[in-house]
Design a protein around this nucleic acid. Structure first.
Length: 369
RNA sequence: GCGCAAUUGGUGAAGGGGUUAACACGGCGGAUUGUGGUUCCGUUAUGCAAGGGUUCGAAUCCCUUAUUGCGCC
């Protein structure tokens, strides 16, 4: 079956909902950790369940190159391949074309670009992206889009946005996995009328959910929040809304306030590997000398495995020595931090005090040390 | 005891009279938003074994001392 979204409650524009999938039912708004190469870097599925993580995000482009969608198919699909019994969303590869192809040639048909592994010439089309995702057998597939750089001229953004809509239709036409839902992606750059146009045209194609893409590509916060506002009012209330690639603690609050249901971001795991941890008082860098003899947990009242068992001084030691356990322990903490934040956000919506929760969270987060 | 050579930061070192002592590693700090796990950026010797001298100018030349290495009695 496809996913089903049920809107439970509104608090102004913020939404409380339930997302029913073949791998369980989950509350929204939610945060989804990124597992590009069929794993959330350094973590096991059991560890993800323990921190109440639900959906994870894997990547079409990366799995297409290695190991190849046929291998995953032979394994019995992505869930069996990676031993994950929660819902999986696959990104389409559109963002990778934007982020890691130095030379790319975008045409109506698709994108020609070079493999980041061996430089081999690749050609990815909307149809191919969907076909690969069908084989990967994720629960949610994403349309193949072009992520517009920032800044971009109006003419470029308009042409690209219109093409992304044609690509969305082409992908939908070949989509053939009845156990997989398909989301459309709103683009439009920073332009209000293009965001509106993109949202309306994408909705006409009748997807199972809608994403807001093309954010967090170098624009300032105000511009990013505007990008959400411009588009989200044209999205149907009975379908999930997913803000792609956004995951700073404050951005989650800003997104929820505007009506976003789902977020994903590499930040908690990437920051972890570089020694950074989220705390209620802002981000800290465990590499800092001041933690050398700090034998307290990252956060005293955090319920994660890391905080219940390890000290800052020990994690600093691991990170300093480039030991993988350091990145693992910090990944556990950082993901749990965002998931816990979402739990509290949902609770605050339920209790009609989201505004107050948001204000208090931001006040504390920015008042670091 | 005599002769020869060496001594530059936390480390490996470049520079053999011209001004701010190269580069690398390490250290310290920052960045990171649909992940190219090894990335990027900033900073880090007011000082060249110590002292004295020559010179407009010395890590670079000279002298003394110390330490280290090699060779010879």
């Amino acid at each position: 079956m496809k996913i089903k979204y049920e809107l439970i409650k509104n608090y102004k524009k913020a939404r409380l909902g339930k997302l029913k999938t073949n791998y369980g039912t989950f509350d929204t708004p939610m945060f989804m950790p990124v597992g590009t190469l069929a794993n959330v870097k350094t973590l096991t599925p059991e560890e993800l369940y323990d921190m109440h993580s639900a959906v994870i995000l894997a990547n079409t482009y990366h799995l297409w190159l290695r190991p190849g969608e046929d291998i995953v198919d032979k394994a019995g699909g992505l869930h069996k391949f990676m031993n994950y019994n929660g819902p999986i969303l696959t990104d389409s590869g559109g963002f990778q074309v934007f982020s890691l192809a130095k030379k790319k040639d975008i045409s109506e048909e698709g994108v020609v670009f070079k493999s980041h592994i061996d430089g081999k010439k690749l050609f990815l089309t909307p149809e191919l992206s969907i076909q690969i995702q069908n084989k990967l057998d994720s629960d949610i597939a994403m349309s193949f889009d072009e992520c517009i750089p920032y800044p971009a001229s109006y003419e470029y953004a308009k042409a690209s946005t219109e093409r992304t809509i044609r690509w969305a239709k082409r992908g939908k036409d070949v989509h053939s996995n009845n156990n997989q839902s398909l989301f459309g992606i709103v683009q439009g750059g920073e332009y209000q009328d293009l965001r509106e146009y993109s949202a309306k045209e994408t909705v006409k194609l009748n997807f199972d959910g809608y994403s807001i893409g093309g954010t967090s590509v170098g624009e300032d916060k105000v511009t990013m929040y505007n990008m959400i506002d411009y588009a989200i009012k044209y999205l149907p209330i009975d379908k999930p809304r997913y803000l792609m690639g956004v995951g700073e603690p404050i951005d989650l609050l800003e997104g929820v306030e505007r009506g976003v249901d789902m977020f994903d971001c590499v930040l908690p795991t990437r920051l972890a590997r570089h020694g950074n941890a989220f705390t209620r008082n802002g981000r800290i860098n465990l590499k800092n000398l001041k933690y050398k003899e700090d034998f307290t947990p990252i956060e005293d009242n955090c319920d994660c495995y890391t905080c219940k068992n390890y000290t800052k001084a020990y994690i600093r030691h691991l990170i300093t020595c480039d030991e993988m356990l350091g990145g693992r322990l910090l990944s556990i903490h950082n993901i749990r931090f965002l998931i816990k934040e979402m739990e509290e956000i949902r609770e605050s919506i339920k209790n009609d005090n989201f505004d107050k929760y948001k204000e208090e969270f931001i006040r504390q987060y920015k008042n670091s040390d």
